[in-house]
Amino acid sequence: MRTRIVLIAGVIIALIGGAYAWKEYNRTAKDAGAMQEVLTVSAHELQREFRANEQAANAKYVGTTDQAIKVKGMIRAIEPAEEGRTNVLLDSGEENSAVVCEFSADALPKSWAAGQNVFLKGICTGVNDLIPDVILVRCSAVE
């Protein structure tokens, strides 16, 4: 009887462990909209901080694991990206760079247009070289 209970308990634990492992293995990366933002910043300030000290800005806005930040800015352009995604370019205060925010096909509000001031959340991945855009991915509009 005791062996039977131990066996059943072992099978249940194995099933729960297996289900957790399967779920964890197939987990997809969350959009920023599903995360609580750690900071709020304007697009101009974000660009300025990356320009002033990239290492410090990486530590603050990129972090060691994915974190959402809330950004306020004016839309300079909306451009199509790969696989139905869209890049929203926020004015960075510099002519040759932008804060580039990538939205999935269904995450971008249809009403957004160039010249509009908006709030959004995104996962900051850092500032690029050559064209010093600050890049945010998995973005979500903030109403």
Binding site: R27, T28, A29, K30, N128, D129, L130, I135
Partner: peptide, 26 residues
Amino acid sequence: TSVWDAASGALEFSMLIKAFAFEKAL
């Protein structure tokens, strides 16, 4: 990002590692 000078042939790329997207978060 990439800049290519067709006259000299000079070519440069730069990419952020954290901007790589995978199907699985893990």
